[in-house]
Amino acid sequence: MSALSIRDLTIAFGRHDPVQVVSGISLDLSPGKIQGLAGESGSGKTVSAMAVLGLLPATAQVGGSIRLGTTELVGLRPRELNRVRGRRIAMVFQDPSASLHPQLTIGAQLTDHVRAHLRLNRRDARQRAIDLLTQVHVPDPAEALRRYPHQFSGGQRQRIAIAVALACDPEVLLADEPTTALDVTVQAGILHLLRELVDQRDLAVLLVTHDLGVMSAVADDVAVMRHGQIVESGSTHDVFTTPQHAYTRTLLESMPDAQQSLVEDDE
Protein backbone atom coordinates (compact mmCIF):
# COMPACT_ATOMS: atom_id res chain seq x y z
CA MET A 1 0.00 0.00 0.00
CA SER A 2 1.59 3.26 -1.02
CA ALA A 3 1.28 6.40 1.04
CA LEU A 4 1.31 8.69 -1.99
CA SER A 5 0.68 7.65 -5.52
CA ILE A 6 1.44 9.87 -8.49
CA ARG A 7 0.01 8.75 -11.82
CA ASP A 8 0.67 10.34 -15.21
CA LEU A 9 1.35 13.74 -13.72
CA THR A 10 1.61 16.48 -16.32
CA ILE A 11 2.37 20.12 -15.64
CA ALA A 12 2.27 22.93 -18.17
CA PHE A 13 2.73 26.66 -17.75
CA GLY A 14 1.04 29.45 -19.61
CA ARG A 15 -2.49 29.88 -20.91
CA HIS A 16 -1.94 30.37 -24.59
CA ASP A 17 0.98 28.45 -26.00
CA PRO A 18 1.58 26.39 -22.83
CA VAL A 19 5.03 24.98 -22.13
CA GLN A 20 4.93 21.45 -20.79
CA VAL A 21 7.55 20.98 -18.07
CA VAL A 22 6.43 17.63 -16.68
CA SER A 23 5.06 15.08 -19.11
CA GLY A 24 3.45 12.09 -17.49
CA ILE A 25 5.46 10.91 -14.51
CA SER A 26 4.34 8.18 -12.12
CA LEU A 27 5.80 7.50 -8.68
CA ASP A 28 4.79 5.62 -5.55
CA LEU A 29 5.94 6.56 -2.08
CA SER A 30 5.82 3.81 0.54
CA PRO A 31 5.87 4.21 4.31
CA GLY A 32 9.34 3.78 5.74
CA LYS A 33 11.01 4.36 2.39
CA ILE A 34 12.88 7.23 0.83
CA GLN A 35 12.08 7.70 -2.83
CA GLY A 36 14.73 9.75 -4.56
CA LEU A 37 13.98 12.02 -7.51
CA ALA A 38 17.19 12.96 -9.29
CA GLY A 39 17.79 15.27 -12.20
CA GLU A 40 19.56 18.42 -13.24
CA SER A 41 18.20 21.94 -13.11
CA GLY A 42 15.28 22.32 -15.46
CA SER A 43 14.41 18.63 -15.44
CA GLY A 44 11.09 19.28 -13.70
CA LYS A 45 11.84 17.60 -10.39
CA THR A 46 11.10 20.58 -8.16
CA VAL A 47 7.96 21.48 -10.09
CA SER A 48 6.69 17.94 -9.56
CA ALA A 49 7.22 18.20 -5.80
CA MET A 50 5.47 21.57 -5.76
CA ALA A 51 2.50 20.06 -7.57
CA VAL A 52 2.08 17.46 -4.81
CA LEU A 53 1.77 20.32 -2.33
CA GLY A 54 -0.49 22.34 -4.60
CA LEU A 55 2.04 25.15 -4.45
CA LEU A 56 2.26 25.91 -8.17
CA PRO A 57 1.30 29.36 -9.46
CA ALA A 58 -2.13 29.85 -10.98
CA THR A 59 -0.71 29.75 -14.50
CA ALA A 60 0.17 26.08 -14.06
CA GLN A 61 -2.06 23.41 -15.55
CA VAL A 62 -1.80 20.14 -13.67
CA GLY A 63 -3.07 16.89 -15.14
CA GLY A 64 -3.05 13.28 -14.00
CA SER A 65 -3.55 12.07 -10.47
CA ILE A 66 -1.86 12.50 -7.09
CA ARG A 67 -3.47 10.33 -4.44
CA LEU A 68 -2.68 10.63 -0.76
CA GLY A 69 -4.17 7.44 0.70
CA THR A 70 -7.69 7.75 -0.68
CA THR A 71 -7.68 11.52 -1.21
CA GLU A 72 -7.19 12.82 -4.73
CA LEU A 73 -5.09 15.99 -4.53
CA VAL A 74 -5.29 17.15 -8.15
CA GLY A 75 -8.20 19.54 -8.44
CA LEU A 76 -8.71 19.81 -4.68
CA ARG A 77 -10.07 23.14 -3.50
CA PRO A 78 -7.53 25.41 -1.77
CA ARG A 79 -9.24 25.10 1.61
CA GLU A 80 -9.23 21.34 1.56
CA LEU A 81 -5.68 21.35 0.29
CA ASN A 82 -4.71 23.50 3.26
CA ARG A 83 -6.01 20.82 5.60
CA VAL A 84 -3.82 18.23 3.93
CA ARG A 85 -0.75 20.39 3.64
CA GLY A 86 1.19 20.62 6.88
CA ARG A 87 -0.86 17.88 8.56
CA ARG A 88 -0.62 14.89 6.24
CA ILE A 89 2.07 16.11 3.87
CA ALA A 90 4.94 18.24 5.12
CA MET A 91 7.82 19.82 3.34
CA VAL A 92 11.46 20.66 3.97
CA PHE A 93 13.20 23.10 1.66
CA GLN A 94 16.77 23.82 0.66
CA ASP A 95 16.73 27.01 2.67
CA PRO A 96 15.53 26.33 6.23
CA SER A 97 14.77 30.02 6.63
CA ALA A 98 11.91 29.52 4.17
CA SER A 99 9.99 27.51 6.75
CA LEU A 100 10.99 29.46 9.85
CA HIS A 101 9.72 32.88 10.82
CA PRO A 102 12.74 35.07 11.59
CA GLN A 103 11.04 37.14 14.27
CA LEU A 104 9.38 34.41 16.31
CA THR A 105 11.08 32.17 18.82
CA ILE A 106 11.42 28.51 17.95
CA GLY A 107 9.04 27.75 20.80
CA ALA A 108 6.35 30.05 19.43
CA GLN A 109 6.59 28.52 15.98
CA LEU A 110 6.54 24.92 17.13
CA THR A 111 3.87 25.25 19.80
CA ASP A 112 1.56 27.43 17.69
CA HIS A 113 1.77 24.90 14.95
CA VAL A 114 0.93 21.89 17.08
CA ARG A 115 -1.72 23.75 19.06
CA ALA A 116 -3.48 24.88 15.92
CA HIS A 117 -3.49 21.51 14.26
CA LEU A 118 -3.65 19.07 17.14
CA ARG A 119 -5.73 21.11 19.63
CA LEU A 120 -3.33 20.65 22.51
CA ASN A 121 -3.23 22.83 25.61
CA ARG A 122 -0.23 25.03 26.27
CA ARG A 123 1.62 22.60 28.52
CA ASP A 124 1.14 19.59 26.27
CA ALA A 125 2.12 21.64 23.24
CA ARG A 126 5.33 22.72 24.94
CA GLN A 127 6.13 19.18 25.93
CA ARG A 128 5.51 18.07 22.36
CA ALA A 129 7.79 20.82 21.03
CA ILE A 130 10.56 19.64 23.37
CA ASP A 131 10.01 16.03 22.26
CA LEU A 132 10.24 17.07 18.60
CA LEU A 133 13.46 18.99 19.12
CA THR A 134 14.86 16.00 21.02
CA GLN A 135 14.01 13.74 18.12
CA VAL A 136 15.88 15.93 15.65
CA HIS A 137 18.80 16.11 18.11
CA VAL A 138 18.82 19.82 18.79
CA PRO A 139 20.91 20.18 21.96
CA ASP A 140 19.17 21.57 25.05
CA PRO A 141 15.63 21.68 23.61
CA ALA A 142 14.05 23.61 26.48
CA GLU A 143 16.54 26.41 26.02
CA ALA A 144 16.26 26.27 22.22
CA LEU A 145 12.53 27.05 22.46
CA ARG A 146 13.38 30.52 23.76
CA ARG A 147 15.73 31.39 20.94
CA TYR A 148 15.26 32.83 17.45
CA PRO A 149 16.19 31.13 14.17
CA HIS A 150 19.20 33.38 13.52
CA GLN A 151 20.79 32.22 16.76
CA PHE A 152 21.27 28.74 15.30
CA SER A 153 23.75 27.44 12.75
CA GLY A 154 22.53 26.45 9.28
CA GLY A 155 22.53 22.77 10.20
CA GLN A 156 20.59 23.33 13.42
CA ARG A 157 18.10 25.49 11.54
CA GLN A 158 17.49 22.69 9.09
CA ARG A 159 16.94 20.30 12.03
CA ILE A 160 14.42 22.71 13.50
CA ALA A 161 12.70 23.05 10.11
CA ILE A 162 12.41 19.27 10.05
CA ALA A 163 10.95 19.34 13.57
CA VAL A 164 8.34 21.86 12.40
CA ALA A 165 7.56 19.67 9.40
CA LEU A 166 7.08 16.63 11.62
CA ALA A 167 5.03 18.44 14.25
CA CYS A 168 1.69 17.04 13.10
CA ASP A 169 2.88 13.51 12.39
CA PRO A 170 2.60 13.69 8.61
CA GLU A 171 2.44 10.54 6.52
CA VAL A 172 4.49 12.01 3.72
CA LEU A 173 7.53 14.30 3.80
CA LEU A 174 8.75 16.10 0.70
CA ALA A 175 12.38 17.15 0.96
CA ASP A 176 13.55 19.44 -1.83
CA GLU A 177 17.36 19.64 -1.86
CA PRO A 178 17.35 19.59 1.97
CA THR A 179 21.14 19.49 2.27
CA THR A 180 22.26 21.43 -0.79
CA ALA A 181 22.93 24.66 1.10
CA LEU A 182 24.80 22.88 3.89
CA ASP A 183 28.45 22.08 4.37
CA VAL A 184 29.36 18.48 3.75
CA THR A 185 29.99 17.59 7.41
CA VAL A 186 26.65 19.12 8.39
CA GLN A 187 24.95 17.42 5.47
CA ALA A 188 26.13 14.04 6.75
CA GLY A 189 24.40 14.72 10.06
CA ILE A 190 21.11 15.67 8.38
CA LEU A 191 21.21 12.55 6.20
CA HIS A 192 21.61 10.40 9.32
CA LEU A 193 18.68 12.19 10.89
CA LEU A 194 16.50 11.74 7.83
CA ARG A 195 17.18 8.01 7.70
CA GLU A 196 16.55 7.66 11.43
CA LEU A 197 13.22 9.51 11.29
CA VAL A 198 12.01 7.48 8.32
CA ASP A 199 12.78 4.24 10.10
CA GLN A 200 11.28 5.31 13.41
CA ARG A 201 8.13 6.96 12.14
CA ASP A 202 7.40 4.93 9.03
CA LEU A 203 7.49 8.16 7.04
CA ALA A 204 7.20 8.12 3.27
CA VAL A 205 9.77 10.55 1.89
CA LEU A 206 10.21 12.08 -1.54
CA LEU A 207 13.78 13.33 -1.70
CA VAL A 208 14.43 15.72 -4.56
CA THR A 209 18.11 16.34 -5.21
CA HIS A 210 20.64 16.81 -7.97
CA ASP A 211 23.34 15.34 -5.75
CA LEU A 212 23.81 11.70 -6.68
CA GLY A 213 26.08 11.14 -3.69
CA VAL A 214 23.29 12.17 -1.31
CA MET A 215 20.85 10.08 -3.30
CA SER A 216 23.01 7.01 -3.10
CA ALA A 217 23.53 7.45 0.63
CA VAL A 218 19.91 7.64 1.80
CA ALA A 219 17.40 6.79 -0.94
CA ASP A 220 15.88 3.32 -1.13
CA ASP A 221 14.61 3.84 -4.64
CA VAL A 222 15.58 6.34 -7.29
CA ALA A 223 13.85 7.90 -10.27
CA VAL A 224 15.97 9.89 -12.72
CA MET A 225 14.23 12.78 -14.45
CA ARG A 226 15.13 14.52 -17.67
CA HIS A 227 13.12 17.00 -19.71
CA GLY A 228 10.01 16.38 -17.63
CA GLN A 229 10.08 12.61 -17.89
CA ILE A 230 11.35 9.79 -15.73
CA VAL A 231 13.96 8.05 -17.84
CA GLU A 232 14.90 5.40 -15.33
CA SER A 233 13.71 4.16 -11.96
CA GLY A 234 14.42 1.31 -9.64
CA SER A 235 16.16 0.42 -6.42
CA THR A 236 19.07 2.73 -5.65
CA HIS A 237 21.53 -0.12 -5.82
CA ASP A 238 20.38 -1.23 -9.26
CA VAL A 239 20.19 2.22 -10.78
CA PHE A 240 23.63 3.19 -9.53
CA THR A 241 25.44 -0.06 -10.22
CA THR A 242 23.74 -1.18 -13.44
CA PRO A 243 22.19 1.90 -15.02
CA GLN A 244 20.03 1.01 -18.01
CA HIS A 245 19.37 4.37 -19.59
CA ALA A 246 22.13 6.22 -21.44
CA TYR A 247 21.36 9.47 -19.62
CA THR A 248 21.78 7.84 -16.20
CA ARG A 249 25.09 6.42 -17.35
CA THR A 250 26.22 9.83 -18.58
CA LEU A 251 25.27 11.41 -15.27
CA LEU A 252 27.13 8.80 -13.26
CA GLU A 253 30.19 8.89 -15.49
CA SER A 254 30.37 12.66 -15.17
CA MET A 255 30.70 12.36 -11.39
CA PRO A 256 34.26 13.00 -10.19
CA ASP A 257 34.03 9.76 -8.21
CA ALA A 258 33.98 7.85 -11.47
CA GLN A 259 37.09 9.54 -12.78
CA GLN A 260 40.80 9.02 -12.49
CA SER A 261 42.95 11.72 -11.05
CA LEU A 262 44.46 13.91 -13.76
CA VAL A 263 47.58 14.46 -11.71
CA GLU A 264 50.48 12.55 -13.13
CA ASP A 265 52.61 10.77 -10.60
CA ASP A 266 56.06 12.01 -11.45
CA GLU A 267 57.74 11.18 -8.17
Binding site: V19, G42, T46, T59
Partner: peptide, 12 residues
Amino acid sequence: GAAGGTEHEEPA
Protein backbone atom coordinates in the same frame (compact mmCIF):
# COMPACT_ATOMS: atom_id res chain seq x y z
CA GLY B 1 3.30 35.45 -19.28
CA ALA B 2 3.79 32.08 -20.86
CA ALA B 3 7.49 31.72 -20.32
CA GLY B 4 7.25 33.22 -16.83
CA GLY B 5 6.21 30.04 -15.10
CA THR B 6 9.05 27.82 -16.22
CA GLU B 7 11.68 30.48 -15.67
CA HIS B 8 10.49 31.02 -12.16
CA GLU B 9 10.60 27.39 -11.12
CA GLU B 10 13.97 26.28 -12.33
CA PRO B 11 16.17 28.80 -14.07
CA ALA B 12 17.19 27.53 -17.46
